[in-house]
Write a protein that binds this DNA or RNA. Structure first.
Lengths: 141, 141
DNA sequence: CAGTATCCCAACGGATACTG
DNA sequence: CAGTATCCGTTGGGATACTG
C-alpha cells in the first residue's frame, strides 16, 4: 500500500489509465490507505455545500456566506483553505480597498462538482422517504 | 420552509413529480431546512464506506468490520443503527446460537449506493492529483 | 470585506469491559 | 458473535474581538 504519490512519468496517461492505476494503488477500505483521509475530508457537510455553491463561476467570501445560510465565517474560511490546498478551489485576491477575494472551482474541483451535487440533491429528493422511515422505526415496539 | 414531511396523498406520484416536489420544498442551502441535517448524516466517512461495502448482498457485522479495516465496533454499530433508522439498511436477526445478524441495503439504500460509491471512487481515482496539489500549495512562499 | 486568533463547550470516536 | 455501557482524550465548530 502506497504512502506517497507516485511520479507520473508517462505524459500521455489518459483518464482510463489513470483510473486503472488508482484502482491498483488505492483502496479506501484499507485502514492505512491515504484515500481514507481524503475521503474523510470530502465527506464533510460544508464541502457538500461549498462545492455546489461555486457553480456558475467565481464567488466572493461574502457571497458564499450568504448563499450557504448559517455557515460561520470560521468554518467557511477553513473549508475554503482546505479545498484550496487540495487543488479543488482557487483563491484570487484583487488588491483594492477594500480587498476583493474570489473563489473558483479548479478543473479538479469541476470533476468533484457532480459528485457533491448528487449528494445534496439526494438529500433534498429523498428527505420525505427518510422521514417516513424514521417515523416507522421510532413507532415500533 | 418546511419543518416536517408532507403527507403524500397522491398515490400515483412518480419519481419525476417527487423530485419536482422536493425541489420546491427543500433546499440544503437554507439553515433551517431539515435536509441540512440529513446531509450531515450522509457526509460521513463511515457511511461512505459502509454503503459501498454492502454491495453484493447481505453482510454480517463481523464481515463488514473485516472489510472496512480499522473501523471500531462502536462506530460500525452506531453507523448501521442510523442507516437502519433512516431506512437505508435492514437488520435481520437469525436467532441461533450464536445469533446471526445480517445487514442489507433497502431499495432506498440502493438509490444512495451509486452516490456513495462515486465519492469513494473519486477519492481513489484522484488521490495522486490531490497529493500534487498539496505539494505545490505547501511549497509556495 | 476578508482573515486571524482565542475561548470554550459539545460531539466524535477509540479502548475497554461486560451481557445475551 | 453482536451489542451496550462507560470512560476519556481529541476534534469540531460557534461566538467574539481584533488586524490589514
Amino acid at each position: 500500500m502506497p504512502e506517497a504519490p507516485e511520479e507520473d512519468t508517462m505524459a500521455t496517461t489518459n483518464a482510463a489509465q489513470r483510473r486503472e492505476q488508482a484502482r491498483r494503488d488505492y483502496d479506501a477500505f484499507l485502514a492505512g490507505c491515504p484515500t481514507r483521509e481524503l475521503l474523510s475530508r470530502l465527506t464533510d457537510k460544508w464541502v457538500a455545500l461549498v462545492i455546489p455553491a461555486l457553480a456558475g463561476g467565481p464567488q466572493r467570501h461574502g457571497e458564499l456566506a450568504h448563499r450557504i445560510a448559517g455557515v460561520s465565517q470560521k468554518m467557511l474560511t477553513q473549508t475554503l483553505r482546505t479545498l484550496e490546498r487540495d487543488g479543488l478551489v482557487t483563491r484570487t485576491v484583487t488588491p483594492s480597498i477594500p480587498p476583493r477575494v474570489d473563489y473558483e472551482l479548479t478543473p479538479l474541483g469541476h470533476e468533484l462538482f457532480p459528485v457533491m451535487v448528487s449528494i445534496k440533491d439526494w438529500a433534498e429528493t429523498h428527505m420525505d422517504r427518510v422521514f417516513e422511515a424514521r417515523a416507522q422505526f421510532d413507532a415500533r415496539p
